[in-house]
Design a protein around this nucleic acid. Structure first.
Length: 325
DNA sequence: AAGTTTGTTCAGCT
DNA sequence: CAGCTGAACAAACT
């Protein structure tokens, strides 16, 4: 499950291959992977089929696939940018971007044109790069929860760059509501702490709220809470500002650590960029270790459910009591 | 073969 | 009304 570090590895791997490349062809094998893509016809008529939480009818799927292929073919791509788990690639001389979210099982694979097919390829984009030659980007997604789209850039609300990878203060509409992530140079930790402190829901859930800070999913939420010794079910507004700052520092630490380990899996051979290689390659202290001993105190780690999401934590190190701080 | 997995959105409730 | 909760939803693997 790609979270911020995995998405960043993908962004960094794609960036040199897409910047300056011309799109020579687009193939949509499964339009269900375009559920975030709104066709021009839908935009102009104002009748936008509900792509989220509902299966699109066949006609809309066909319309969107054709629209996506048409609007992307022939363009020249620019920088690859990321905020949180959202990823986009600028289109030169245009306010549109190629926009995507990998969700649970999405991968953006960079391949030579003669490479054998990977499993579950839903969308294929053919490229010609002035330096690297002919390439393919294959969007593979086993569960199809992820999607690609063409989206429009709008101004950022704080006039800082839209995300990592660009200096332009522009962000795709669909990512506009997402807060900056802890690895963003313009990330405001004080504001994130204030946002968390206003919530009465469990700290684990507040940490997953992409409007407060982005990029944290279930894995790194458990890891950061373990590192900061905070019980996942403690109401966010009962955690002191000091401990929330420690928590955000822990988030940055686990992100950096995963990024460093994920990064080592990706050598300079950009054509080998493979979303799978970085996932779960790093050592985890909490996630998936229910029933195993705590790496800090030896106590057996416990599994609980916080609003339908599984959480693993150490009942001793992360005692559910308010701590001074 | 029912259960598990997760990011995101939203109806509906307090 | 603002904020929160719980659920819905996507699809495939075990």
């Amino acid at each position: 499950m790609p979270e911020l570090p995995e998405v960043e590895v993908v962004r960094a791997g794609l960036a040199p291959a897409v910047n300056g490349a011309t799109v020579t062809g687009v193939e949509v094998f499964d339009a269900r992977s375009l559920k975030r893509h709104i066709s021009l016809i839908e935009q102009q008529s104002g009748e936008i089929a509900q792509g989220h939480g509902r299966t699109l009818d066949a006609a809309t799927q066909q319309l969107r696939a054709a629209d996506f292929e048409k609007r992307l073919t022939g363009v020249t791509l620019g920088p690859a940018v990321r905020r949180g788990k959202f990823l986009w690639i600028h289109i030169e001389g245009s306010s549109s971007v190629l926009f995507g979210h990998l969700a649970m099982s999405g991968q953006l694979l960079l391949r030579g044109i003669d490479a054998p097919d990977d499993k579950n390829v839903r969308i294929r984009i053919w490229l010609n790069h002035p330096v690297h030659g002919e390439l393919r980007i294959d969007f593979a997604d086993q569960r199809r929860f992820g999607s690609l789209a063409i989206d429009e850039l709008v101004a950022t609300d704080d006039s800082h760059p839209g995300g990592l990878g660009t200096e332009l203060p522009l962000i795709p509409q669909q990512a506009g509501h997402i807060a900056r992530d802890p690895l963003d140079p313009a990330f405001q930790q004080d504001a994130a702490v204030r946002g968390l402190r206003q919530k009465s829901l469990p700290i684990k859930m507040a940490l997953l709220d992409q409007r407060i800070l982005s990029g944290v999913g279930n894995i790194y939420a458990d890891e950061a809470l373990w590192a900061a010794r905070i019980h996942p079910e403690l109401p966010a507004n009962q955690v002191s500002a000091k401990r929330l700052n420690e928590l955000l520092t822990a988030v940055q630490f686990v992100f950096q650590k995963a990024l460093a380990e994920g990064g080592t899996s990706f050598d300079a051979q950009y054509v080998n960029v493979n979303g799978e290689a970085g996932y779960f390659a790093h050592s985890l202290n909490a996630y998936g270790r229910s029933g195993k001993p705590c790496n800090r105190c030896g106590e057996t780690l416990k599994r609980s459910e916080v609003i339908d999401r599984s959480s693993v934590f150490c009942p001793v190190c992360q005692a559910k009591r308010r701590r001074r701080g």
